[in-house]
Design a binder for these strands. Structure first.
Lengths: 334, 334
DNA sequence: TTGTACGCGTTATCAT
DNA sequence: ATGATAACGCGTACAA
């Protein structure tokens, strides 16, 4: 900037005015300055700008696995909302480790990101004290965190589980089991509780059958075989998220067990599997969008009380929820 | 830092030394400083550090769609390599628009990112002049860019197409067609050229049949119907990437057309579709990793000539490449 | 309309 | 082993 000023025979302040389109510069001086800028290829150094202004126009997203479709959709949505509002997005993965997450958050705070969207790793009992101390706005997604009230975007887990169970019951299933993911995850626990509660509320026979993860195709194969061999065999399962659904589909295919299925999380090609998989869709794009908007509102000074937004889920009915006997082959029906 | 210095009765420089673990600080003064740091919750301001040192410890990744599994896997790999080496990753999407890409790159340069990993959008004839002028190291992924030699990581498109065609031919297919993506994409064009060349080299009958995108399920349904109604009907298609594979699978299912298929890009559940889909796998994780490593080497001063790394593809043989008649039902064979 | 002087928080240099 | 001071490049406040 000093170089430009010297070349154009003006002060740095005038250059600054031109670069930032501030008013109060005569047309011809502006043109002269612009010409010099283009000629010597000047580019403003945002680092210095940040140091001076205190805002970085940067937000960060912390998830556990960027390659998982659920998170990559959230990620795409957050990036989009950020970009539209002139924020850049730093994405970081904690790979599911609270320890790594702590380190990641610390380095993001050091960077003075203007805000954080975080899917808290594993068992996270409270808002990170480092973040709290820094005063950086933070929005949690998918899983809440205990302690002081914080903006949170979660999906309606009880509602989703309820829609899954009711759908199966409406299709004649009575012995329904839940294949949940690792109980370390809050979502997995919440879905389990909802399942047990709804199971009992509907007066389904026996105790609610639940198997929590982590699951492998092998372990699920065995589990399904066991359930289907009981004297009152399980006729349908609900899978707790896209990971479990995937493993369960493989296990079913391998063992040849035919069971009703409602999976949590929609996935591409769910309609091309035989039978087409009925799912509870969580709409991660909307969750990411909502979180980003809320975060940016906070950055811009919104001081209203912290809110928890519960996003509705949507049951996408395909075929896997029906009793095997009543499934129509699509080829026959088309 | 000044606050800490005052509290600990040392100079700011000594605090700086402690914070950065520089040698030359007596054990007891270090402890004293650390105590103050913890007490008042001091956190280094990386903005100032950046301004002083000129390096941001940040790299950026520019792709067109973070939610597409191909890019999200690249993204996860780049983030991982970056994080391990203490770099933060800014991800940005150009949404396929060269104009937006230009703006995105410019703001990243203004931020003084240390390096760029870019999947160039649409038709990009040359290295971006802004980037070139800034001297920021850049590595292109998936598609090369003309002009001065630049580090590039692409996959072996001719090899991938060849393996697909040869697999189909080995299974008795003779009338093979290509469903490519939009010819605007370099990869789509290269795969088309490879397909035509291999088609002719193998002496397959007639002219190579090719249909480039963008495709919709509707357009593909019609296209497949046309091809299957010809006097020498097409018996197998190769799809040019995961988007096209998806649409083609839906089109086949809808129209009931039975054709051999080899898809570009592996995808989850490819083995659960009936018939299981044979694919050319590109290993985006390795591509992202390779690109990140090469970029960081450049940042660290590697001055060797720009190199183009061609990653091998791998044909994952399942069932969709066989002639329909010879397909075994898995249930029968297990 | 334009310019001067200072400060943002850190690190590099050179002293002590 | 420690400290004083000058940068880094920009924006703010105020003056001209």
């Amino acid at each position: 900037m000093a170089d430009v000023a010297a070349e154009a025979h003006v002060s740095v302040k005038t250059v600054s005015r031109v670069v930032n389109r501030e008013p109060g510069v005569r047309r011809d001086t502006e043109l002269r300055v612009r010409a010099v800028i283009d000629r010597i290829g000047f580019m403003r150094h945002d680092g210095a700008r940040i140091l001076r202004q205190g805002r970085t126009q940067t937000i960060a997203l912390v998830v556990e696995d960027l390659a998982n479709p659920f998170y990559s959709q959230i990620s795409a949505a957050v990036e989009r909302e950020a970009r539209i509002r002139q924020y850049q997005l730093i994405t970081a993965s904690a790979e599911g480790s609270p320890t790594r997450e702590r380190g990641v958050l610390e380095s993001l705070i050091n960077r003075r990101v203007d805000g954080l969207v975080v899917v808290p790793a594993g068992e996270r009992p409270a808002v990170d004290p480092t973040v709290a101390a820094s005063g950086t706005p933070i929005v949690y997604v998918d899983r809440p965190v205990r302690g002081q009230a914080t903006d949170t975007v979660i999906s309606d887990n009880p509602g989703g589980v309820r829609s899954a169970v009711e759908h199966l019951v409406a299709n004649g299933h009575r012995r329904i089991a839940l294949l949940g993911d690792d109980a370390e995850f809050w979502t997995a626990r919440q879905r389990r509780e909802a399942f047990v509660q709804i199971h009992d509320a509907l007066g389904l026979p026996g105790d609610a059958k639940v198997s929590m993860g982590p699951h492998t195709v092998d372990s699920l194969t065995e589990r399904l075989a066991t359930w289907s061999r009981e004297r009152s065999p399980v006729t349908a399962v609900i899978t707790g998220n896209n990971r479990v659904t995937l493993a369960a589909l493989h296990a079913m295919r391998r063992s040849g067990v035919e069971m009703g299925l409602v999976g949590y999380d929609d996935f591409e090609l769910a309609d091309l599997i035989e039978p087409a998989v009925t799912v509870v869709n969580q709409d991660p794009t909307s969750m990411g969008q909502k979180a980003a908007l809320q975060l940016i509102a906070r950055i811009l000074g919104d001081e209203s009380p912290a809110q928890t937004v519960v996003m509705p889920t949507r049951l996408i009915v395909r075929e896997s929820g029906r009793l095997p006997a009543s499934r129509s082959l699509r080829k026959a029906s088309s």
